[in-house]
Write a protein that binds this DNA or RNA. Structure first.
Lengths: 258, 258
DNA sequence: GAAGATCATGAATTATCTTGAAAGTACCTG
DNA sequence: CAGGTACTTTCAAGATAATTCATGATCTTC
């Protein structure tokens, strides 16, 4: 069995329950623990899954489709995402206006920003982010109106484009489905249009990217990396990718703690 | 059992009652006190729960921020509210546009409407209502943008007034803080303005009122009872109040089941 | 087409981590 | 303040992980 196939089947196994032990997987695939360990470590470093002692579980984004309990989802939120969110929140100054694109990485930034306790104005098209921020009395939260994308907490639509294009923000946090050294892209034209308008509305645009998304390409490009003011990602980025990216834009690498 | 799963299940247990003893949890999960103690301490340090002597409880702030829907599902929603919501949802016809005012009673109507499974378009200024409707693929959900009222899931502000005044709906469900035979009123001018625009935007306006609110008066009046097409309330209304109300508007009394 | 290099694999060894229990300490409660 | 309960610390056993090496397969290179 070819290694890529084996790795695909590991992810397939994980999709069943969201997590599995190494022992179970080695038996299911008929390979030795050594080989399986190497595969799982590889998939962990590339961000496709998360290692745990004795097993592995799906990457947060891939797990989302399984719709676990929110409390569980939050506990399983990756350290990388938390660290990226924390670094992003550090950039916010008192009184600024900050836009949060829809997504889990930007949600991590929103949570970290809330926990910093400084007053600022937030603008978002994500119901979950709005919910997170609403508990803090020092944060003014503006939700741009639009249609809910079924099964998600994202707001979309022409109304939103108009609303966003009228706004100016000091800081914009953008999530992305895929990032290459050249551009950022996402899965649908709707989303791409919206993210495009977010980038344009901000004085500074910061892309928050976890490494499972890095250097793949999705359907619709929505921004050039040179337009960004910074990319914040985690330390699992490959050195050669980092170099290619640094030729275009300032890159901040966060270290996952704990 | 993998450690992350065990920790997730601890949070799951806590979500049921809000708190639990270490002993109960160790038995429920089938792990030793030592292990459980380590997990609970870990979750305490990461902010997911609060330690107490002999047990643990869910972090209150986190509970609300994480999940908008379960907060409504809990005791907040009385049987009366459920019954009112059910009766309201019965009024919706396939393909109609329905506006949901912000509030727990209207949220009950939204939930019942979602569970009926018929396709319609919903308009709301409530994050929680949008969240619970978004899970149904047959419902188009439009969120009117605005500022979040701190500590609630209500959207407010001038943008929303403009947006609502441009819309037309077949049906509008209105919650109210207080109801007299003459008028409906609420606590702040902002809210009253908004509810006023909701009433005007709808072909038919239906007030959903549970009896704890009936026949009191709040600060700002926002509509005359004669403008309403119907009031839905529960059977605990006093007979003389019911009579006074029926002189002005059609009243539907629901019986609380269970 | 053969010799050498490179790589993937699995086994064996050693190191590290997790777990549960035991012993001692601090803390609530009556 | 006495008795029980919960907490902390420590340790040993088992499980998991990292490291190393031998083997066989594939790929280069001549």
């Amino acid at each position: 069995m070819l290694p890529p196939l084996r790795r695909a089947r590991i992810l397939e196994l994980l999709r069943k329950d969201g997590m599995a032990t190494l022992k179970d997987m080695s038996e299911a695939l008929g390979v030795s623990m050594s080989t399986l360990r190497r595969d799982v470590d590889y998939l962990g470093e590339s961000g496709h899954l998360e290692r745990t002692h004795g097993g592995a579980m799906l990457n947060e984004d891939r797990r989302r489709a399984l719709e676990l309990e929110p409390a569980i989802a939050s506990e399983l939120e990756s350290n990388a995402k938390r660290a990226i969110g924390y670094a992003a929140a550090e950039l916010i100054l008192t009184g600024q206006t900050v836009m949060f694109d829809s997504g889990t990485t930007t949600a991590a930034a929103a949570r970290a920003a809330r926990d910093r306790g400084i007053p600022f104005t937030a603008v978002t098209n994500d119901l979950a982010i709005a919910g997170l921020l609403s508990s803090s009395p020092s944060i003014r939260v503006l939700v741009v109106g639009g249609f809910v994308r079924t099964g998600t907490s994202t707001l979309l639509g022409p109304e939103i484009l108009r609303a966003v294009s009228r706004l100016r923000a000091d800081l914009v946090f953008i999530g992305t489905h895929a990032l290459t050294p050249d551009d950022l892209s996402d899965t649908s034209a709707d989303l791409a249009d919206l993210k495009r308008s977010f980038v344009e509305a901000g004085e500074r645009a910061i892309a928050l990217v976890d490494t499972s998304k890095i250097f793949s390409r999705a359907f619709c490009s929505f921004a050039n990396t040179r337009e960004l003011d910074r990319v914040i990602t985690d330390s699992r980025i490959r050195p050669e990718d980092l170099q290619a990216l640094r030729d275009r834009v300032e890159v901040e690498i966060v270290s996952e703690r704990e």
